[in-house]
């Protein structure tokens, strides 16, 4: 099922080699994060201060949470370019509810339900309308982005009630976003690995006809996985909307690309069928670590995007080289 492990070659290798082969990408990113921390802390020890570590890890938690859902979508063989616009819309809904005097738990949960509902429509158009997911979500991107700005006029929402700011709170001394990120990542990872439903996502992405022949209700699964992705977008929104004192009711530019990039760098193959959400979460942390490191080593933050671009290309090239090598050894 997973092309990361060459069949017929597995039995001869040790457990360690198997682990490295199956989680190669995750290990590479973890290694990159570790190397970055060591190098930058040698130049500037303040990089490792608890405050900065907290900023690095919790600042991009919403990207990591959204990337969990995105990884599921990509593993199933689809793509969603509308998720950034969706998060913008849901954040505005959340902030509007909070300032209108509704209890904060409603302002937190309603966006999650709205995310599930909107993505149910996307999923149905993909699965039953047989429109490619990139086309549906491209259309949805326009609808959500245009709808949001024409309704709100891009106004900022302030005067948010103080107890609304969930992302600024701590539980057992650990910031709430880190709890969200860790629990959701581990939960999703185990769910995708050990349940029939989770495995069926890999099956659909790996070979849709084989999945159908194996009795997986492919269409229904696609709608369901889009709804789950919508729920993760809603959860990401809760972190995104509650981290600052204001909510800018526009769509964060390029947010969908950042989320897709986190998934892809994390080792989710765009061809579907492989990858884990541990990798995408590590990639989200790596992004914010790089952003922070550039400040500490005095590189102009204007170059951040170029660095991330180089990083994407290097990871992808290494991944492709590994694939080619494993295909060769499988043939032997």
């Amino acid at each position: 099922m997973s092309t990361d492990v060459a069949p017929g070659f597995v039995a001869k290798r040790s457990a360690v080699a198997r682990f490295i082969s199956a989680y190669g990408q995750e290990l590479v990113i973890a290694g990159a994060i570790a190397a970055l921390f060591v190098l930058v802390s040698l130049i500037s020890p303040r990089f490792l201060s608890p405050n900065n570590l907290n900023t690095i890890i919790s600042g991009n938690a919403y990207i990591a949470v959204a990337a969990i859902g995105m990884s599921m979508i990509i593993i199933t063989g689809h793509i969603d370019v509308s998720v950034g616009a969706l998060i913008g819309v849901l954040a505005t809904i959340s902030g509007t509810l909070a300032t209108a005097g509704y209890p904060v738990w409603i302002a937190w949960t309603l966006p999650i339900l709205a995310g599930i509902g909107i993505n149910a429509i996307i999923g149905a158009l993909v699965a039953y309308g047989r429109i490619p997911s990139i086309v549906v979500t491209l259309g949805m991107l326009s609808i959500l982005r245009g709808g949001l700005v024409s309704i709100t006029g891009g106004a900022w929402i302030n005067n948010l009630p103080p107890d609304f700011h969930l992302a600024q709170q701590r539980l057992l001394e650990i910031p709430v976003p880190i709890w969200f990120m860790v629990l959701l990542t581990v939960g999703a990872f185990l769910w995708m690995r050990h349940t029939a439903f989770g495995r069926s996502l890999y099956a659909i992405g790996g070979n849709i006809e084989a999945a159908r022949a194996a009795g997986i209700p492919v269409e229904r699964r696609v709608v369901q996985v889009f709804m789950i992705h919508g729920a993760f977008a809603g959860l990401a929104t809760v972190l995104f909307a509650t981290q600052l004192r204001i909510i800018q009711s526009t769509v964060p530019p390029n947010l969908e690309l950042t989320i897709i990039t986190a998934s892809v760098i994390g080792g989710v193959s765009i061809l579907g069928g492989t990858g884990t959400v541990i990798g995408s979460t590590l990639a989200a942390i790596l992004f914010s670590a790089i952003g922070s490191a550039m400040i500490f080593i005095n590189v102009s933050p204007y170059w951040l995007r170029a660095v991330i671009g180089v990083l994407i290309l290097i990871t992808v090239l290494i991944d492709m080289a590994r694939r080619v090598r494993e295909q060769r050894s499988a043939k032997r």
Partner: peptide, 26 residues
């Protein structure tokens, strides 16, 4: 390198825009 076009150009999207931002500094 047989990189899928979506990924390859996603990478260069970030790279080329990044170079433009780095050179111009707004």
């Amino acid at each position: 390198f047989r990189v899928p076009p979506l990924i390859a150009t996603l990478g260069t999207l970030a790279l080329y825009r990044g170079i433009a931002e780095g050179i111009s500094e707004a």
